[in-house]
Structure formats: C-alpha cells, structure tokens
Amino acid sequence: MSIEIEKKFLVKSDDYKACAKPVLFRQGYLSTSIGRTVRVRRYDDKGYITVKGKTNHCTRLEYEYCIPTDDADNMLDNLCLQPIIEKVRHFLVYKGHEWIVDEFLGANKGLVVAEIELNNEKDSFEKPDWLGKEITSDVRYYNSNLVNNPYNTW
C-alpha cells in the first residue's frame, strides 16, 4: 500500500522555469468516481496506470504500475474520458524539497499548478516566491475534475 501526501498551489510567475526540467505528459481517466480514480499516464518512453483513493485533506491511497507504452497510448486514445489532460511537467528542487509544476495545455491552457509531496501532513517547507494561493482542498483543480470541467470553461 502506498500513501500520497501532497499539497497544491497556484503559480503566479514563471520564475520556476529557470531551474526546472520540462517533460511532456499525456494522461487520461478510465474512472473519475467519487472516492476513486483510475488514471493512465504516458511520458517519455513510459506508461503507467494509477488507482487513487479518496482524498482526506492532503492524503490518499495511491497504487501505480508500469504498463507497456503501446497499451498506455491505446487506452489514452480509445478508452479514456475526453479531453485528455496534456501538460508540461517541470521538475525542480527548492530549499531541499522536490517540486513539480504542471503547465496545462489544450482545454486547460492557462492553468499552472505546483505540487509538493511530503512524508507527513505536518512537514514544514519554505515556499518559493513564484508560489501563489494554496488549492490543496479545492476539488476544481484535481486533474480528474479538469476532464469534466476544463479550466477554459470557468
């Protein structure tokens, strides 16, 4: 069993790009039920399927498995709910913590969200200057909800 503890924030400037490594991601959802999601993800030469449980504040169960890239591509193109989430994910380290910043494309263009994964909900961390409002508990920003309610329709 795996537990994910993550906090999410809006991003107010692109200063994070100066020290980040960008990677193009495609992901789709086979299920976006309340209490569980099933996601397919493809980036670089890797494919994954992920099952996530209900979020309790910033914690939830998460199970992720590698799958063949051809299977991931086929599921994204033929089985996943539309639109597919496309984003450039930027990986960086700030003050000893790993951050990811997702710059959304397509139907969610204009949305930029930063995430930090923690070992404990009470872990402290220093916030970068480019970080905006915390949105951890705002369900509108869940990737699984951006399929049914894309950012460009808000």
Rank of each mutant, 00 (worst) to 15 (best):
D45G: 11
P83A: 02
Y142F: 15
G35A: 05
T153E: 06
G110R: 11
K52Q: 07
I100H: 14
V11P: 06
D102P: 00
I116A: 13
C19W: 10
A18W: 07
S2I: 02
N152F: 03
K127F: 01
L118A: 15
N149A: 14
E117R: 08
S137C: 10
M75P: 03
N74D: 12
I84N: 14
D70V: 14
H97T: 14
Y48K: 05
V40H: 07
E117L: 04
G35W: 04
I5Y: 02
M1T: 05
E117M: 15
K46E: 11
N143V: 00
I34V: 08
F91L: 13
L118G: 09
Q82R: 14
E86T: 07
G110L: 10
I3V: 15
D71E: 12
K133M: 13
K17H: 08
Y151L: 01
N148Y: 04
A72D: 13
Y151M: 05
D15Q: 04
G28E: 00
T50I: 10
D71V: 15
Y16C: 10
G35N: 01
W99E: 03
F125T: 03
Q27P: 12
V11I: 04
L24M: 09
S13G: 07
W130G: 05
T55Y: 15
N145I: 09
G53Q: 09
T153D: 03
T55G: 14
L118P: 03
Y94K: 03
F25V: 01
R42Y: 01
D71F: 09
D15N: 11
R26P: 02
Y151D: 02
V101Q: 00
H57N: 15
I67S: 14
V139D: 07
L111Y: 05
L118T: 06
F9V: 12
D45N: 12
H97W: 12
R60W: 06
Y94P: 00
L131E: 03
F91Y: 11
D77T: 01
A72P: 14
A18S: 13
